[in-house]
Design a protein around this nucleic acid. Sequence first.
DNA 1: GGATTGAACGCTTTTCGAAGCATTCATTTC
DNA 2: GAAATGAATGCTTCGAAAAGCGTTCAATCC
Lengths: 208, 208
Amino acid sequence: MPLTGVVAPPLDETAKAILEAASRRFLHYGYGKTTMSEIARDCNMSTGNLYRFFSSKLDIAEAFVRHLRGEQIRRLREVVGRPGLSTPEKLRTFFKTKLKLVYDRFHSRPKAYELSQEILKERLAFAEEWESAEALVLCEILEGGEMTGDLPVCNRVRMARILQDAFFRFTSSAVYYEGDYDVLAGELDDLMDLILDGITHRKLRDSQ
Amino acid sequence: MPLTGVVAPPLDETAKAILEAASRRFLHYGYGKTTMSEIARDCNMSTGNLYRFFSSKLDIAEAFVRHLRGEQIRRLREVVGRPGLSTPEKLRTFFKTKLKLVYDRFHSRPKAYELSQEILKERLAFAEEWESAEALVLCEILEGGEMTGDLPVCNRVRMARILQDAFFRFTSSAVYYEGDYDVLAGELDDLMDLILDGITHRKLRDSQ
DNA sequence: GGATTGAACGCTTTTCGAAGCATTCATTTC
DNA sequence: GAAATGAATGCTTCGAAAAGCGTTCAATCC
């Protein structure tokens, strides 16, 4: 068995293994009921060694939620990028998909929901990052509306912010999703109708 | 001292005294740190006797929050009823005032805020009642818009609901008011501009 | 005999010592 | 000597006993 010449697997491999082991446990038992020793054991290493790859347990959780976010953003881009959608339809699809994602996470993946909640509460910066990432997708949609003349908007960044505010009720992971999905989706549709009318007939008021 | 002929103060008087004593303590020490014995002592009666007037501690708290709600609704009606306001201005004033009320309660009357939170979490029906009461004010504003032709809306009840959804971010007592007031107010204004444009140029779509 | 009391009941919250955990770092491994 | 370990540390959580509380109701009062 050669002792030299064999390049050790890159650090990232190990980090990935840790993250995977942790994720499994987080999803199954929750953040609080997962211990660093367990994660270490799953990876055949000591607790101390974990800290060469992540500087705290919360950082592992953040990496995991970061992954969830990635999936979510990818999904949003996907549904919004489907061919044949007008810009208004894209906006509607964006928020409806987001509602569905958050609603489903809340109702059928409670551990994942809790985990997001905990991380976003501790890591304000990360929460803002997430919002920005979504705002970016919105801006891209609006850019499309500008190009096709479909739904022209002067200040796209600002409009994205306004839209996020308007649909907060339907998309914030901070709210507790009691009601029936179809009712929520219906109300979202109503609001979207109104807002699209607003954008279409916008008296130019975007200042600055 | 006449024993007959002196009508005992009406029950309501006693209930009012209890409510007042309880409110003082709720506001000063919070719901959890106020005991029924203390309330009873403040009113010079036994704990058992309290239950002739309120069937539980939570009911006293609800009565108190009901009072808060009354004040708030009265205030909303007041600012919205000021002469010389157009219907759009009334809508804007309504939501801006609501934001200010919730924001201020959160920041400068934390005990009152907590109390509302607790009651609204326990008493779902009461929370809905509150929403309905505000929806009613909105409907009245919209009715004015219909009459003056200022801002005609077909389905007022539905529009009220949509507006409540849209401004949820700024007016829900469920959200944690971290940000700066002026920033929030600014975003509210932006959203209101957009929505007013929407209402004004509404493609008639109110179904049913 | 209706109004009022306050002790009694069962449940919740607090307390506080013990156990468990995240994190560190002197030591060991290769 | 870089990588890895696991015992040591100080903080948090847990559990069980005790105290406290909301609520009830038999006894008392007027």
